[in-house]
Structure formats: structure tokens, C-alpha cells
Design a protein around this nucleic acid. Structure first.
Lengths: 225, 225
DNA sequence: AAATCGGTTCGTCTTATGACGAAAGGTTCA
DNA sequence: TGAACCTTTCGTCATAAGACGAACCGATTT
């Protein structure tokens, strides 16, 4: 999950009748001058003008990509960056996310991700209707509480899968603090498991699972579902 | 809102290090032969091969667009059309959708769409951070529950604007049933207003608004925002 | 009135795209 | 062992992309 804005600009330019006009539209939207753009690309300003005016009618993919990336990089340095506003970096927090059309039993889901249950008291009964894989550190440090809902998709009856977990305390604290409760919390390759994390999971009636699969492996397995 | 798949393929080709490989990937995904593609484009098959093999490394936007459209058109004639599978869903249901960079006050938003408040008890306090215009009948009959979250974009603090509303009961029932709640629900030219709809809105603390603007007028006004 | 800034126009150059068609390399299947 | 089909390779050509720089236009600013 990365660069929705990048893709949007790229497709808009590529599919446009007048790619130059679309380039201009975005350059102006991002408040970048032709001069800045050309400087960043190590080109003469006239080149940009030639594209935008339409002297070059069908820029190649290489050119389009260079321009899109330059626009976004220049935008990123701005105070009012659209790129940063776009995500609140959500794209970097959510590594993968899906909703299933039918619920999976928790034991089936656990097998898929080669997980083991960390709690003896929480019964494995809540079906899993989707999952969200997130970078725990980034989620906890940069996600505003008012944006937490975004990780829940259609159904809260889902597995929240945290990567980059050390002891697993913070993710469970966050779950405890938030009104929406997942059916399952999964830690990817945790160093150790904090006892409080397990207690909180039991209090919230949330299944707490760990897996020794790597981040990449688990995402591959889930996206193949 | 049209052609999410088209945009996806276009951006993927444009942003790829090897556009030819991406073209091939999609051609094969859609089960189209080079010969078919070239015939549809009135080109020699070798041209397609040259692109895919990378002899031409940076095809122009015109070329990319022609290829993307040809792929989709050929796919459309297939029994197992990916394009049709896609458009069964979202593209025909969501008529327009946007997220604002700053929130609008509900009264400002109401003025823009010439709306009137249908409830006396729900205070107009939740700011509007975006909107989704959807065909109520299609949304209710064809939207899979696992896709519902897609209409919420980046923020649930938005206006869900339903067109083709008779009495307004079903849309509010759907909102009631769903864990994500919009800040505002707008009915476009409803015939009559069901009393239960108003009750449900009040229960959910959702502002319920009607407007006499036509679908086209309201979309035009919103997209100009 | 001169300087600055953002942008345009255009002549010119090199290189790559966009296209063809002929020949040939692999599979699959009768 | 062919025939049929999908694909690749490559020599060749015209045209457009990709780039430069100089001159120029119009606002603002100094």
C-alpha cells in the first residue's frame, strides 16, 4: 500500500487527451513553479513549458514518472504538503488490508498464519471477516486517535496484525483505549510477550496470537487468501 | 467515477521500471494474445512484442492509453471479464467522491447543496471532511458488505449523498447496520420522507438532509468545491 | 525605468519511439 | 512430422521525443 497520490497523478497524465495540461494542473495544484521543477529534474525550464504547452504531445513513461516523482518530492518539502495530507502516512502504516466475503473461523485463520494462542482464557469463537497488517511503531506514534477507525475497514470482526513488535504492550494498550475492538490481535515475530498485554487481551475478550512468520511471508499468505 | 481498473493499469505501466513487463503482465492476466491485441490496434504483432520485450523502453502516453483501452475492450468481450467484475461493483454505484483537505462546517456544506434539515434533534456540529454520492438502489442491491467501507474514503466524517431515493428508509437502515457512521446523510429529490428514517438518523446522531437539486446539479456543485 | 520572476516560443540537434515485415524459435496437438 | 499458434528478433525507415539556449512576453517589485 504505497503512493495512492502518485498513482493517481500518473494515471491521470497517461490517460489524458492532453498530458501537458494535466501536468500543469498538478504542478499548479502543488504550487510548484516550472523553474523549480526543471531545476529538480536538471532540465531547462523551457522543456517543462514545451510539455505543458503540448509541443511534446505524448511523453514517454520514463518522463512521466520522473515528473510525477519530482512533483511529489518537491511537494513533500512544503508546509502544506498534499502528499503528507493524503496519507497522514496511512499508506506507510497499513501494510496490507482486506475484507473477506465470508467469515473465517479463528482456528482456520490461525493455521493460515501459523499462529499460536497466547491466552488460555479467551475462547476462540469470534469469526474473522478481514485483516489489517500494520507497522506497530508507526501506527502508535503517528496515527491520530480520530483516525484509528481507518484500520478497521468494513468489519471490526477482524485480525489486527502488528509488525515490529517488541513486547506487545503498546498495541494492546491502544486497543484497550479505543472503542472499536478487533476479534483478534496478532504479533509478528515479537521479541518477548509482556504479561500485561495478555491480561489486557483477556479483559477485552480479544484473541492474542503470535506468529514466527516474517512480515513479508504473512502478507504474501494473506493476500493469496 | 469510471475505470478504476483502467487507471490502475495505466499507472502501473507508467510507473514501472519496465513498462513492457507490466503490459505483458496485464495482457496475460486478461488472457489476451499479442496477435489479438495487435489486430485490435491495427498493428503488427511484432510491435507488441517489441514493447513487451523492452526494445521500446519508454512508450508515450498515447501508446500506453491505446494499449490499456484495447486490453480492457478485448477483456469486456470475454466471459470471465475482469473489467465487468469490477464495474459490477463500485464504479456504477459511486457517482462522485472526494475528500477535502480541511473540514467544512455542516451549515456551509448544507448551503452549498441547498439542503434542508429533516431532524430537529440532531445538532449540526460534525464537520464534513468529504462526500460520496451514490445510487441508493444499486448500492443497496449490489454492494457486497465487504465492500461497504470503500464508500467512506479517507474519513467517515463525510456526507453520504443518496440519489434515487423514494422514502429514504433503506439507506438509513444500511447506515444503522454498518459500524462506520457518516456525519451526514443527504437525500437527493426524495419523493417522501419515511418517519422511521428520521428516527434512525436521530438514534445514530447523523444529520439527515434533503435537497431538491438534481443529481447532476449536486455533483457539479460538489466537484467544483 | 530597470530588474526580477514565471512563463512562452522556436530553431536546432541527437536519439528513441513507433511502425513494418520477413524470418525464425518454441509449444501443443492431431 | 508437420501444421497451427504464439511469440521473438532484427534491419530499416520516418517522425516525434527529449533536450538546449536565446529571445521574448507580462506582471510585480524595487
Amino acid at each position: 500500500m504505497k503512493g495512492a497520490l502518485r498513482e493517481k497523478i500518473a494515471s491521470e497524465i497517461t490517460l489524458s487527451d492532453y498530458p501537458g495540461k494535466t501536468i500543469r494542473k498538478w504542478r499548479e495544484e502543488l504550487e510548484i513553479t516550472q523553474h523549480e521543477l526543471s531545476k529538480h529534474l536538471a532540465l531547462s525550464p523551457s522543456v517543462i513549458s514545451d510539455y505543458e504547452s503540448g509541443r511534446r504531445k505524448s511523453p514517454g513513461t520514463r518522463t512521466v514518472r520522473k515528473i510525477v516523482d519530482a512533483l511529489l518530492e518537491l511537494d513533500k518539502t512544503r508546509k502544506s504538503s498534499l502528499y503528507l495530507a493524503e496519507s497522514d502516512n496511512l499508506d506507510e502504516i497499513i501494510l496490507s488490508m482486506k475484507d473477506f466475503s465470508v467469515g473465517l473461523s479463528p482456528s482456520t485463520f490461525m493455521k493460515k498464519i501459523q499462529g499460536t494462542n497466547l491466552s488460555k482464557t479467551v475462547p476462540l469463537v469470534r469469526n474473522i471477516h478481514g485483516y489489517t497488517v500494520l507497522d506497530s511503531l508507526k501506527a502508535i506514534t503517528t496515527l491520530k486517535s480520530s483516525d484509528y477507525w481507518k484500520i478497521y475497514g468494513w468489519s471490526t470482526e477482524r485480525a489486527l496484525i502488528f509488525t515490529g513488535v517488541k513486547f506487545g504492550r503498546s498495541p494492546m494498550v491502544a486497543v484497550r483505549a479505543h472503542p472499536l475492538k478487533p476479534a483478534m490481535v496478532v504479533y509478528v515475530q515479537p521479541e518477548r510477550i509482556d504479561r500485561l498485554a495478555v491480561k489486557l487481551a483477556e479483559l477485552e475478550n480479544v484473541s492474542l496470537i503470535k506468529t514466527q512468520l516474517s512480515e513479508d511471508e504473512i502478507i504474501a499468505k494473506l493476500e493469496a487468501l
